[in-house]
Design a protein around this nucleic acid. Structure first.
Lengths: 136, 136
DNA sequence: CCTAGAATGATGACATGTCAACGACTTCGC
DNA sequence: GCGAAGTCGTTGACATGTCATCATTCTAGG
């Protein structure tokens, strides 16, 4: 079930030239001051391992979506910086992606469905926030 | 949510020496007459691509869990055969795995939860059968 | 100041999966 | 029969992710 929805949104995203991991990185990074973050902070924010983000950053760096810079505050660290190309790619992909998620997920479920889904996810020990605006 | 449950069952399975793909292959193959199947039939039965099954079969063959044999009925094809080691690995892993799935999934949900989950999965366009004995 | 220990990011070795070829073989229509 | 077309399993080239390990660098305690 997850798989079916994810496959669709991933396909839609791919049409804009980004993978889901790409989108996650870009959309998280763009919210940072200076669209910049140390790798470990970014990883923590995303719930990724440093290793995973390091590897994915390398792939995105090759494609020019982000850049690495030495961290002036910590000689061990590095800063991930959103490039103009990365910002542009995100700008181009965002509406498409939101629309894709809406069409493939949100529009298919009513309030009861969402409530049930959150309840079940909770029972299964899910720890993701899922931005649930229903509690309010 | 899927992720959280899967990670747990995968970890439990790993303790028995099998990955989830391993288990899928073995448990499907053991149900075949002669615990044998052509690769493409097995792939179709599992909903995998031939490429994926071919690759995973190679990994499992190295570990002695299955073997390949030429298909006497089709010179292009090959037969996947469960080995004694594969059968033994499956035998050892099965109770653990069923218990793991029960503990991490089935036991946490009541009949209403399952009904809701199936309803939602259906709305999201899920095509998996999920062996739903609730309709009966 | 100086060292022991912790943290950072990179990387080797793998596991898993996709996609687009490809060679080998079968089958279908004639 | 025979050639075109399809199918079978494999594979190269990648993308993604894990885990353990490593060289650097930082930091805390003496």
């Amino acid at each position: 079930m997850t798989t079916s929805v994810r496959a669709g949104t991933a396909r839609d995203l791919a049409d804009t030239g980004l993978s889901e991991p790409d989108y996650e990185v870009l959309s998280t990074l763009v919210e940072r001051p200076g669209t910049t973050s140390t790798l470990h902070e970014q990883a923590a924010k995303m719930g990724w391992s440093r290793s995973r983000l390091s590897r994915h950053s390398s792939r995105m760096e090759v494609r020019g979506l982000i850049a690495r810079a030495p961290d002036p505050a910590d000689g061990r660290g590095c800063l991930l910086v959103l490039t103009a190309a990365g910002r542009e790619a995100l700008r181009a992909a965002t509406p498409t992606h939101l629309e894709s998620v809406r069409r493939r997920f949100a529009d298919r479920l009513d309030a009861d469905d969402l409530r049930d889904l959150l309840r079940i996810a909770d029972k299964l020990g899910d720890r993701s926030e899922e931005a649930a605006p229903l509690d309010g």
